[in-house]
């Protein structure tokens, strides 16, 4: 056999500046280095509640921006260098192209730093990640969407996407619960919609409040009066961990098939790509196999609910 002596140890480079010239497709973009955030500019900031703010962002590089396509239910990892990186659901509909909106609660270090930023500031974005809601599959059916608290952030992407293609869907029912009237997000939009004939809106707050004349009670209260065409309905749930068990049960009681009840899970996340292990439940990665799971899948994951 011919000798192929290699030169004494040299230094190789995992990646050069060159390999990072933005490639054309989303896959190529990821292949270069999936950990690399891309610069995005904050183009608008809308305070929603005391703790939550809506940020609109635009990826700066043209080719990366054009390659970026998301589906309702997916998330991005948002970086502020020197502070850290956090997973945040995309709150805007894919039909709003060129920009993405995220709705962020001030919860800790990174989310606070984000709240301190101004219009025009730069953040890092990578993604989109995760398994989305089955938007195409839902077409031609009734949809029943239930959100609690911050759960409205990812569901809003689905809601707005359905809105933009409203004729493709049958009956659309949205149940949204917040603790207090002040914590209702996108209140104006939803109050307007509650008068529309093509959306059944059920807005509720946990406890009676002087400024509130609408429904009071948990989101499960809505199910007492809801009429559900079980064979023709897709359900989607997003909210705090305690909410799932109760809402799922209500949906199942109405007769919706387990594989048509979808929910989005939240777990600690670091990588977003099925590797760091933080989001693991049972044999699944919430970041990769989820965050959206159907009830059947969730039941089969040890420790999911």
């Amino acid at each position: 056999m011919e000798s192929r002596k290699r030169t004494a140890p040299t230094t190789l480079s995992v990646m050069t500046e060159q390999s990072f010239t933005p490639p054309l497709t989303g896959e190529e973009m990821m292949a270069a280095n999936p950990y690399r955030p891309w610069s995005a500019r904050i183009t608008s900031i809308t305070p929603l509640t005391e703790k939550e703010t809506l940020f609109e962002m635009r990826i700066i590089d043209d080719r990366v921006r054009e390659a970026f396509h998301h589906h309702p239910g997916q998330f991005v990892c948002v970086s502020i260098f020197g502070v850290g990186e956090v997973p945040i659901s995309i709150s805007s509909s894919p039909s709003k192209s060129g920009f993405i909106e995220i709705c962020v609660r001030r919860a800790g270090e990174v989310t606070t730093a984000l709240h301190n930023m101004q219009c025009g500031d730069i953040v890092g974005l990578r993604g989109p990640y995760g398994t989305p809601f089955p938007f195409e599959e839902m077409k031609g059916h009734d949809v029943l969407l239930v959100a609690g608290g911050l759960g409205i952030a990812p569901l809003r992407s689905l809601i707005n996407n359905i809105h933009d293609q409203r004729s493709e869907f049958e009956k659309v029912t949205i149940v949204y619960g917040a603790k207090t009237p002040g914590e209702i997000m996108f209140r104006q939009q939803f109050e307007q919609w509650s008068h529309r004939p093509d959306f059944d809106f059920y807005l509720t707050i946990d406890k009676p409040h002087p400024d509130w004349t609408g429904h009071v009670g948990m989101v499960t209260e809505a199910f007492k009066t809801l009429e559900v065409d079980a064979d023709n309905t897709y359900g989607a749930i997003c909210g705090p961990p305690v909410m799932y068990r109760f809402v799922v049960e209500e949906m199942a009681k109405k007769g919706i098939s387990y594989d048509r009840i979808f929910m989005s899970f939240e777990r600690h996340m670091k990588c977003g790509m099925g590797r760091c292990g933080h989001c693991q439940i049972g044999h699944q990665y919430v970041c990769l196999d989820g965050p959206v799971f159907n009830y059947w899948e969730a039941k089969n994951i040890q420790g999911s609910m």
Binding site: P9, T11, S13, I122
Partner: peptide
């Protein structure tokens, strides 16, 4: 180190990593 960055500009400055044939 996965990457180096400028915190002021909030941009990545270097992503090269040294690897030796071993």
């Amino acid at each position: 180190v996965l990457m180096r960055y400028s915190a002021e500009e909030n941009e990545i400055t270097d992503y090269s990593v040294d690897i030796k044939p071993r």
